[in-house]
Design a protein around this nucleic acid. Sequence first.
DNA 1: AGCACGCCGACT
DNA 2: GTCGGCGTGCTC
Length: 800
Amino acid sequence: MIAQIIIDIPAQQTNRPFDYAIPEALDHLVQPGMRVLVPFGRQGHLRQGFVWQLADTSEFKDKLKPIRKILDLEPVLNQEALDMAAWLAKDTFSFLISCLQTMLPNALRANYQRFFSLKAPLSADSPLIPLLDSPLHGKFPAQLDPKLGQKIKLLEQQGVLTIDYQVSQRLGIKKVLVYRNLLTAAMIQAQLIATRANARQQLLLLNFLHDHLTFTGTWADWQEQLPELSRSTLTSAVKKQWLASQEVESYRRPTSLETTETAHQLTAEQQTALAAINPQIVAQQQQVFLLEGITGSGKTEVYLQALAEALRKGRTALMLVPEIALTPQMVNRVRQRFQKQVAVLHSGLSAGERFDEWRRIERGEAKVVVGARSAVFAPLKNIGVIVIDEEHETSYKQTEMPRYHARDVALYRSSIHHCPVILGSATPSLESRARAQKGRYQLLRLTKRPQAAQLPQVNILDMRQADKVSGKTSLSVNLLTALQQRLAAGEQSILLLNRRGYANFIMCRDCGQVIKCPNCDISLTLHQDIQALKCHYCGHQEPIPQVCPHCHSRQIRSFGVGTQRVEQDLQALLPTARILRMDVDTTSKKGGHARIIKKFGQHQADILLGTQMIAKGLDFPEVTLVGVINADTSLSLPDFRASERTFQLLTQVSGRAGRANKAGEVIVQTYNPDNYAIQLAAKQDYETFYRQEMHLRHLGGYPPYYYTILVSVSHAQEDLTAQKIFQIQRQLLPILSPQAVVLGPVPQMIARINNRYYYQLIIKYKQEPKLFAALQQLTQTMQKESGFQLRIDREPLQFS
DNA sequence: AGCACGCCGACT
DNA sequence: GTCGGCGTGCTC
């Protein structure tokens, strides 16, 4: 037998299977979907590969090398997954190997170790005895004897043992430090006197210990009780022997919720929606629903009851949520409904945690999967319904190979599993809404808020006329006054800084030169906190210069509004306000995002200041004011989706104000008060926006009236890059119909990144039967052209 | 990615 | 003559 194997070659210069001989010892063990180690190249170095297919013969019959080792006793990818990989590779012009790897948890891409657990002790003569490290637990040796492997597999089939996998790098059991008080009440009194009055944190800690002598917990637990406490105070307290610290094993899935939640009473609209969806789950029909519901209209309840219906029918369910909306609040709500049947996949998990969840899904222990983009590949069997919440979110599209859109993958899977798909949003993408218009999707609308909560009062503030706070160009007196009022009333505010297409750069006032990245054609961004200039494309970093590098003038200043700058200004204007800043800088650390949200949710701050990420799916009942500092910066982007993005952002952020019993107010500062996107977002009027925007897309010949494909080439030499893109254009033009439009070739908006030059062209088309094959052909030929990189992006969300 | 093969210029 | 620079192509 011959095994055709997709090999993981780092450079990914090849996209076809390689044939290998199956040694006799592995004869009936090798199956498609298994990972194997094979010798590759002249040196015969071992590489990991996926068995793609089995075959009887090979045209390389005399050159065949044998498979060296199998890494799985059961395939990690079933036939459905392999077929999906083939489809995905073709659909996104990607390499098969990259598709196979994105479908697996990271842990399986690297080395891992295998263990087995026994249900009962083995008999003394069992060949597995040498592998045991405890009576019921054994370890696979690095080089497993194939006969032994066969034996283990047989025992697994008989249910005598189960096989567990662990990642070798993460093999160490996760440990956390737990701090425990050592002081008695009397000792605390003594220390309180002995400690200097300006040692604020230490006094804080002592006072807390006085009232909680037995308090024990991790750093996170302490911080929850004493938000101001720094970690170093705890460590120094250990040194002074006030506290003892101890390493304790922590489990990867600590959360098991005691509380349960049952289904809510449905509104009439929610009932109508479910009455349409549920029969399709029962009938196993591949029907797509577009659930268009204003913020707070209870879309989630519809999802949850649809998931429940799938489970009742003995099927599984998949729910996709944007990464940013995968908050503990959100996850807990699903867990409370479905308890242990839920598996959660998100980027906050370590490789080990993620793998544990993946295994639970694969074994069928978890029947409901909640996760971000890549969870669409979750190894669920017999899917009954797929939900995509906030379906318009751009984060569903992956920006690297394979450039898939989770929505398209979901539609593919629904056709295999014969199940309905629910796309939900308050502001659907025009593509989806247009398909609903044409009847390809069924439109379901939720227009009312259940608890009769009223929509917030939205005021559009014309910044051309408005009084501005003296010395500040970005803050109106109205907004400042409103902030002061909330502060006085003890209520919370959210401030959105729309930073899309807007950054903080440094320019010389004498010669007008902007400081740019030496590797890329882009200005460097000022980061006040680390006192450095940073390139957001290649990561280049340099200190802030004192004089202009071109003319040596001292008149170099920063321009633009950054969150750090606004935070400083606000703090100066509102000295008593507790301001929390949320942007890439403050959330990059693991869990930083969740920590800020938690802090704000517990009302430990008065103002939450941040970029787009504060707009998504957060629910803070105490917030009564939402301010948008610059509504229109995203309007001026050279992107036909600029209005759509602005509308979505403003609609979402406006929905954040006053959701419970308190009335909310929204202040939108803008230089384009008459713009339709801004006007209609203020009214939360999606349908009118949809019609108007569709009209403009029609006039401009943009999606959803046309499909788009971006073809981009890069090379270290600019002239070669330009030549190549024109050559590609000449190749493609003859096979295109007269209806297709080719835009470009042009240099990319940022034409040089990391010392590579980028040129692109965009094809707009309706129906081009020959185009895909030609592009497929192009990926093949370009592999042979060294130094060039080709990128083909179907339906790109960013045209740069 | 590696690594061999091969074509060219510079050197003991 | 021969050593070694790196551009090019292959790996079942």
